[in-house]
Structure formats: C-alpha cells, structure tokens
C-alpha cells in the first residue's frame, strides 16, 4: 500500500512537469492552431541559461526568476521574428519553421555548452519530505511549484481583462479585433507565457533527468501524450492529462512485471496511439480531429 501511495505521488511529481509542457503546447495550439515541436527545446535552452547564471554565481532563486523573465522575452521574440511573418503561410511552412527552431536551439545549446551531461541543483534538496518516506522534498517541490503556477495561470485567464482578451483572441481572432483587441500582441503574449511555463518545467525536471541538449525530447513526448489525452484544445484537460500520464507511467513501471525504466518512451507512444484510436477527441476535449 505504501509503495502504491509513494509511486502515485512520484508519478504526480513527474506528471506535474508533463502538465506544464502540455499546457504550454495547448496554449500555442489555441493561439496559432499549431503544435510547437520546439517547445521542449525552448525549455531546454532556458534551463541552460539558468545553469549558466548559477555557474556565474547567481543564487538559485534569482536565477530561477530571471530565467522565467528571459524565457518570456525569448518566446515573444520568437513569435515576432519567426512566426508572425508566417501567420498566413500554409501548414508546411509552419512545420519547417518549428523544425528549424528545434534544430537551431538544439545545436546552439550543444555548441555553447557542449553535449556532456551536467548536474542541475535541487532548490530544496532531496531529503524526505517532512520526514515522510513516501516522497522527496524535490518531488514535493515539483508538484507544489507547478500547481502554484497553474493556479496563477487559471486566475490570470479567468479573472483579468488581458486573460479574457487572450481567450477571446484564441477562439475567434476576427471578432476579437472587432472589439478592439490587438490580437497580434495576444499571440506574442501566448508565446511568451508558453516559453516561461516551459522554462519552469525545464528547471524543475533538470535535476532529475540531468541537463543536456536532448533532455527534453522524452518529456515533450509525455507532454504531447498528456495534451492528446486532454483533447489538445483544453488547458484544464492538458493539466489533468499530464498528471494522469505521470501516475500511469509510474504505476505501470512499478507494478507490471518485466517492465522497467526502458519502457517509458514506448509507453507514452502507445498511450498516444491508443487515445487517438479509441478516443480521438481526448478525455476532456472538444472535436479536434477532422472526420472525412
């Protein structure tokens, strides 16, 4: 029983990170109708930035918040420089843009910081959380920080004017312009926020998976699985999907015999395929697929 609870909790810890990435994916998906394949790489490069700050002697928390800010600006810049000019371009052009971004970020990280694995500090250490053997302090921090972040985002979208304007611009850009919303700015804001969320996820998961240019590929896969499970268009669904996927992954790894750590990625893939085959609109989403 204790094992079950413990594994569920550490599943939730990973799941919180998947939830963040899934949410970042869904945010971009809702604002520009495309999935950002480079989302993981953006998070990775932000994490490297934080690592570099700490190497230079900046303490953890100032580095943490400065990174979030810089990631936000970077997201806005990516929108302005790369994707705004492509706004009316066909899907393939967008896809090429995402792939270009992916390759450049991945490559630049390798060029600047090389491809060796680097340790990343834990903000609160890894001692048992409040003396409990069920969950470590870092896992508790992963859950806690992500949930605070997600709750703040919820408040922002639900109860502020800009949040409302962003939702309106995402659902019906043309009508949004007709009530005076500067939709271009909302898209930039969406990019910035998605990038910042990714940075948080990256900095929280980096101590666990270690820092290197390809660290986010697997996490992105789980984030995508979570987003698909949540229906791709529902932010709440993405978060729920992330937590579910995290718990599912951990429980299968623990309790199904003959399944170890190496099953993780195939499992995520199987999950994506299963959801698409059985419940293509996800557990929480509206219609996302094109029936023909």
């Amino acid at each position: 029983m204790e094992l079950l609870i413990g594994q569920t909790l550490s599943g939730l810890a990973n799941g919180a990170i998947y939830a963040c990435i899934a949410l970042a994916l869904v945010m971009i998906y809702k604002t520009i109708d495309h999935l950002n394949i480079a989302q993981g790489e953006m998070a990775m490069i932000s994490t490297f930035f934080a690592w570099q700050l700490m190497e230079w002697g900046v303490p953890y928390w100032p580095a943490f918040f400065l990174t979030i800010f810089v990631a936000f600006c970077g997201g806005v810049a990516i929108d302005r420089v790369l994707f705004r000019p492509l706004a009316k371009a066909p899907v393939l052009t967008h896809l090429a843009g995402f792939v270009a971004l992916f390759m450049i970020l991945n490559s630049v990280a390798g060029l600047v910081w090389d491809f060796t694995i680097k340790p990343f500090p834990y903000p609160f250490g890894t001692s048992p959380f409040l003396g409990s053997s069920l969950i470590s302090t870092h896992q508790a921090a992963m859950i806690g920080i992500s949930m605070v972040l997600l709750f703040l985002l919820y408040l922002f979208f639900q109860f502020t004017r800009i949040g409302l304007a962003m939702r309106a611009a995402a659902t019906l850009p043309e009508s949004a312009r007709l009530v005076g919303i500067r939709t271009g700015r909302m898209v930039s804001l969406g990019w910035g926020m998605a990038s910042a969320i990714g940075a948080v996820a990256g900095m929280l998961i980096a101590p666990v998976v270690f820092l290197e240019p390809n660290m986010m590929a697997g996490i992105l896969l789980y984030g995508f699985a979570a987003a698909v499970l949540g229906g791709l268009s529902s932010p709440a669904g993405a978060v729920a999907g992330g937590l579910l996927v995290g718990v599912f992954e951990n429980l299968v790894g623990t309790f199904v015999p003959g399944v170890g750590h190496e099953i993780k990625l195939p499992l995520a893939l199987a999950l994506i395929i299963a959801v698409l085959a059985l419940k293509p609109n996800g557990l929480f989403g509206r219609k996302i697929t094109q029936r023909v």
């Binding site: 409302l164 304007a165 919303i181």
Partner: peptide, 13 residues
C-alpha cells in the same frame, strides 16, 4: 465564453 464575458469583451477598449 459566458454572456457576461461577451459583454465585458465589448468594453475591451
């Protein structure tokens, strides 16, 4: 969006 939110959007400027 809700009716209330639609009205608020009208006053966005």
């Amino acid at each position: 969006l809700s009716v209330d939110e639609n009205l608020r959007l009208g006053a966005m400027t």
